[in-house]
Design a protein around this nucleic acid. Structure first.
Length: 425
RNA sequence: GGAGAGGUGGCCGAGUGGUCGAAGGCACCAGAUUGCUAAUCUGGCGUACUGGCAACGGUACCGAGGGUUCGAAUCCCUCCCUCUCCGCCA
């Protein structure tokens, strides 16, 4: 959520900024109208209430006879107040409804452009491996080795579900353990969060109200299945006021993630690149606003280090305004090369949400400078997404005979196993 | 799921239809004082919106939402949560 005062004070500038991320100027006008209405009603109501308090106290001190005489008048005022309260509640709901649909403002240095047009590679590391045979895609490798079972996943659940089997499951577990240990080295506190959270929580990270149709939910209990651990991690300190000395706070968690993938119908249906359920190690930072930009850079670096340890060639993409998404003020993707399917895979997406989520979730800190409570800045990034990392490992470490060499960084987590071959259990 | 108890400021804990944003204590901050650690005294000490250059005001908030009343932290209803006991269960 943006600061309404910012919009109120610079409507022209904010309109221009918001247009870059596809938010229409007339919606800003509607918002300002709703704000003005709400404030007017609030002001009027405050005056009526002040009068009631004042006069009720007088009434309490009166002789019973006099009191009786004024009661009708006071009752009328009470009714008026009740009516005004209803009107105000309505106006506030409408205002909030609109506010929750306004996307975040991009940082000034984010290149403007529609869709992916303004995205650009800002750096690359490592050479994509050369093969003296045609590298196979992971779905072929996985099936031949018996470590990914697509058919049974579909049998039990439907399309976009699969089993990891034997060494496949073990390899993923090794990746998770390696990543979490690295995150700890990088200063993150590991959490094992709830995977079902309530509406308020999902609204805090701005996945609601706009993206309700991308998530799974239990309607009976008001539980939403987390689409990413960003939701529980960012909300860990929701509605709390933190000591400035505690910042920055780095949190990490391994969790499954659940997504409907309606928007991606028909895309990436092969393999394990895009499922309705996938595992991810997530990083979240709650930082002091002064360090926000630098913290995004180090967040990206924290993600890149995972790729590096796995020996994967990577590149970092700076997203333009058209690809920022709803909550991000700035965003980088980290991609690794997958020689089998022949594409760069997004294994991490690192966003700086500025005070956008903090304002929704009310995560504040007591500022040492102003003595006032201010919103922290929140950042999040994958560290990394498991299926795609698994794809990259399988496809990059495949041998001519179809076996997979286990990257050295993972061997301590796999009981020293050096390769996955057809007979591996 | 059933029965009972309870949810008040950072914490503990009073409170009853009006003068309660809420006693008192602890913690915390500032000042005073005592030749050490410490103690004592005085003052301050919630959040949000809003008016004002400011001084200083207004309104809301005592788990959440409704209701009764001129007036609700205080009475009534619904819900949520916590604790104890019972049942069930990975």
């Amino acid at each position: 959520m943006l600061d309404i005062r910012l919009i109120r004070d610079n409507p022209g500038q904010i309109k221009t900024e918001l247009q870059k991320v596809g938010f229409p100027a007339q919606d800003v006008d509607a918002l300002l109208a709703a704000d003005a209405r709400r404030r007017k009603l609030q002001h009027d109501l405050d005056e009526m209430r002040a009068r009631r308090t004042r006069e009720s106290k007088e009434l309490g001190r009166m002789e019973p006879a006099q009191r009786e005489a004024r009661r009708a008048e006071m009752r009328a005022l009470g009714d008026q107040i009740t009516a005004a309260e209803r009107e105000l509640a309505q106006a506030e709901n409408e205002f909030t409804r609109q506010m929750l649909l306004v996307p975040n403002l991009p940082r000034p240095w984010v290149p403007a452009g529609e869709g992916e047009s303004a995205n650009s590679v800002v750096r690359s590391e490592g050479e994509p491996r050369k093969f003296d045979f045609t590298p196979a895609p992971h779905w072929e490798l996985g099936e031949k080795l018996g470590i990914i079972d697509f058919e049974r996943g579909v049998k039990l659940s439907g399309s976009r579900f699969y089993f990891l089997v034997g060494m496949g499951a073990r390899l993923e577990r090794a990746l998770i353990a390696m990543m979490l240990d690295l995150k700890r080295e990088q200063g993150y506190l590991e959490l094992a969060p709830p995977l079902m959270v309530n509406t308020e929580t999902v609204t805090g990270t701005a996945h609601l109200p706009k993206f309700a149709d991308t998530m799974y939910r239990d309607v009976e209990e008001d539980y939403w299945f987390v689409p990413t651990a960003e939701v529980p991690l960012t909300n860990f300190y929701a509605r709390e006021i933190l000591d400035a000395a505690r910042l920055p706070i780095y949190l990490t968690a391994y969790t499954p993630c659940f997504r409907r993938e309606k928007m991606s119908a028909g895309r990436d249906v092969r393999g394990i690149k895009r499922g309705h359920q996938f595992d991810k190690v997530e990083m979240v930072k709650l930082v002091h606003p002064d360090n926000s930009d630098a913290e995004l850079e180090s967040l990206v670096e924290n993600a890149c280090e995972v790729c590096r340890r796995l020996g994967l060639a990577l590149r970092v993409i700076r997203m333009g305004t058209g690809d920022l998404g709803f909550a991000a003020a700035a965003k980088y993707d980290v991609e690794v090369w997958a020689p089998g399917c022949g594409e760069w895979l997004e294994v991490s997406s690192c966003s700086n949400c500025w005070d956008f989520q903090a304002r929704r979730a009310q995560i504040r800190f007591r500022s040492e400078k102003t003595g006032r409570n201010e919103f922290v800045h929140t950042l999040n990034g994958s560290g990394l997404g498991l299926p795609r990392t698994l794809i990259a490992v399988l496809e990059n470490y495949q041998q001519a005979d179809g076996s997979i060499v286990v990257p050295s960084a993972l061997r301590p987590y796999m009981g020293g196993v050096e390769a996955i071959v057809g007979s591996s259990r």
